[in-house]
Design a protein around this nucleic acid. Sequence first.
DNA 1: TCCATTCTCTGACTCTAGTCAGGCAATAAG
DNA 2: CTTATTGCCTGACTAGAGTCAGAGAATGGA
Lengths: 298, 298
Amino acid sequence: MDTERRTPGQQVEQVRRFNRTVAEHVGVLHDQYLGGARPYGQARLLWEIGDTETHDVRSVRARHSGYISRLLRALEADGLVAVEPHPRDRRVRTVRLTDAGRTERAQLDARSQDLAGSLLHPLDPAQRTRLTAAMAEVERLLTASVVSVETLDPDHPDAVHCLRSYTAELGQLFDSGFDPDRTLLPDPGELRAPRGLFLLARLHGEPVGCGGLKLPADAPAEIKRLWISPQARGLGLARRLLSQLESRANDLGRKVVRLDTNRALEAATRLYRTSGYTEVPAFNDEPYAHHWFEKHLA
Amino acid sequence: MDTERRTPGQQVEQVRRFNRTVAEHVGVLHDQYLGGARPYGQARLLWEIGDTETHDVRSVRARHSGYISRLLRALEADGLVAVEPHPRDRRVRTVRLTDAGRTERAQLDARSQDLAGSLLHPLDPAQRTRLTAAMAEVERLLTASVVSVETLDPDHPDAVHCLRSYTAELGQLFDSGFDPDRTLLPDPGELRAPRGLFLLARLHGEPVGCGGLKLPADAPAEIKRLWISPQARGLGLARRLLSQLESRANDLGRKVVRLDTNRALEAATRLYRTSGYTEVPAFNDEPYAHHWFEKHLA
DNA sequence: TCCATTCTCTGACTCTAGTCAGGCAATAAG
DNA sequence: CTTATTGCCTGACTAGAGTCAGAGAATGGA
């Protein structure tokens, strides 16, 4: 694996070179596997409808514009999909694959698999391992790079979703369970300006993580509710939220941030230690905390 | 970096997942950077013509079919390219960018660069380094996987090209220079059936490496002229050619292959040692050899 | 009940990216 | 000098992938 130092300019060049090479290879792959007898648009739609699920045409339209009506007619004429009114709202229509549709989709699938195999085939086992590992890495980091972070009201449905997931997960992880009524910070107002703030991370629009910052007038800033959705772990998101919370605190004139955590949250504890936090004596009565940390901001 | 063992099926799945993710990201990149006011085909052509060179329309046509005439007219009408007859053969026409064309191409370039930057921007420095390193790895291995190897007559122009490059390179590398007349194997017939064989590696149709196998009736098989073009090094090609030569020898009933090499060729010597070759006493009078190796085939 | 909105479809149109056959001019081969 | 070939262009045609405006049916709200 290449570990040379690169300047930012060289890194941008590497990304562009990668885009060119990969667009060529993957593009060819993609086109060929979708490019049977069926035109691209139809094949893509067939693929998206998927094997088992039934989709509202409404939601498919959001990705394909009005043109899907025609695509659907074409697939319907060939007996690949069945379009039926939604049982509840008969304006909405639903699509699902017929048996013939599933057969044809399976062919696309086999084709895609063959072509993926054809990339691996000329390589020796060691190279295959390296290639797939590097692909996983690229995928992970590209995914990480499209995650956006925004400030959000802690009562927003997406924020509530994250906070609920957070407490649900703690309930499973802590030996003692987790009773939201016993913990400190019962009040979402503490994570809303001017008493604090709340950050939410999104991936393709879906909420995948959050972190809150309490800004009491008479005490150091305090980080609360730092949580990353299980599907979004391994992307370095927690570190990113943490550092954004710190820099927001710094911008607001705070010199110190602190936080508490439970011993069951090992990854979090490691994160704090490797992010410059040092363990300090308990600064609150949080019943679920085992470790208390603080960090002096630069 | 992920170094878990994967089964072949999991590897194929990883490649397909990669294709999906990357097609999405890179596709968006690609489309957006080419998708200014100008339609895709025109932008692509503008890009391919390049900043400085003058191209024969003939050679561009090979990639774009007859349709380029129209694309060229469109670009010409906008004053982006100049089309002129070739000074030598006035049937052939040449294209080059005008100043306006160079300006517009620079905008495409800037756009592409911005978008590559936007992938890196959300990442922290350690992640950027990891991403670009993984991208380089993927690029390298994907390139390796599209290299094809074929049996070719050693008098074929592409074979001759490789063999010339090989001797030219030895001339530079050896302290003593390299005089093709003094070395053994003056006869290309020795690398042609039934007395031997010759393998050529191609990348996108271009010859990028070769290797010969001598099959004397009264002696072990012997590997000769193993060479990889400088632009194609680091792809594991030499090892691939070597192992193909071995398996060809094996298929022809040979139990032992041997070869000689010069001490200046350190990478080659390392390759032989790590491929199961053991050093043996000189088995010929090759004046340019310092090491003699042999391997018993399984 | 009536009216506005939502969801979907269709006809008419457009643009891009081709293919194909034919034609013209320059050059190469005999 | 004639003929064949090469390279390029153009007109006529096509397919795919859309856009846009309008219409019709179902639903929700006042």
